[in-house]
């Protein structure tokens, strides 16, 4: 066990965990922010996507010991008032069906837009291809990411 300080959504959290624990489970079980979801545990589905210094990463496959002082952003910290352009676009298009994968989809989309403010349809498809949605909300996701890109 090791005492580790994590900076999540601009707040510091001190946790006492096995250093090999994936960031996902530290965030969910120890810090108590459950918006980030478990889907596969092997970085194949994207449900666990969070931002590390603004870039989308798969938290299920990152040992907590590797995080260091990086700034972690989870869905709960994406915006103060649920008003990030991607969240607004999700509302406008009523994207979710079951909703389980959506935090990961939103975090992936937000990271894409922070790096590429005007993504092409192909850019959107290539980036979002890493996130599975079993309900197949894919078309609405593509439309919403496009809308979000026009807002910012």
């Amino acid at each position: 066990m090791a005492s580790i300080t994590l900076k999540i959504n601009k707040k510091n959290y001190e946790v006492d965990v096995d250093p090999q624990t994936p960031l996902l489970w530290v965030i969910r079980d120890h810090v108590g922010l459950v918006g980030t979801k478990y889907g596969c545990g092997i970085a194949q589905c994207g449900a666990c996507t969070v931002h590390l210094n603004g870039t989308a990463v798969r938290s299920c496959s990152l040992p907590v010991s590797s995080i260091g002082g990086s700034e972690i952003t989870t869905i709960e910290g994406l915006s103060a008032n649920a008003d990030h352009p991607v969240q607004k676009a999700w509302r406008e298009h009523d994207v979710p069906q079951c909703g389980y994968c959506q935090a990961g989809q939103i975090m992936t989309a937000a990271s894409l837009l922070s790096q590429n403010a005007n993504p092409s349809d192909k850019d959107i498809e290539n980036t979002m291809n890493g996130n599975l949605c079993r309900c197949a909300t894919y078309n609405k996701i593509k439309d919403a990411v496009k809308s979000a890109s026009k807002m910012s």
């Binding site: 979710p96 909703g99 935090a103």
Partner: peptide
């Protein structure tokens, strides 16, 4: 007349909503 998903706000802000998000005092996983 189309109405938005009533759980949409919770979904897009990551609120506890699903079974897997359940936490209770004294609980074991």
């Amino acid at each position: 007349h189309g109405k938005g998903n009533v759980d949409l706000e919770e979904i897009i802000t990551g609120k506890p909503l699903f079974g897997i998000d359940t936490k209770r005092d004294g609980m074991d996983y």
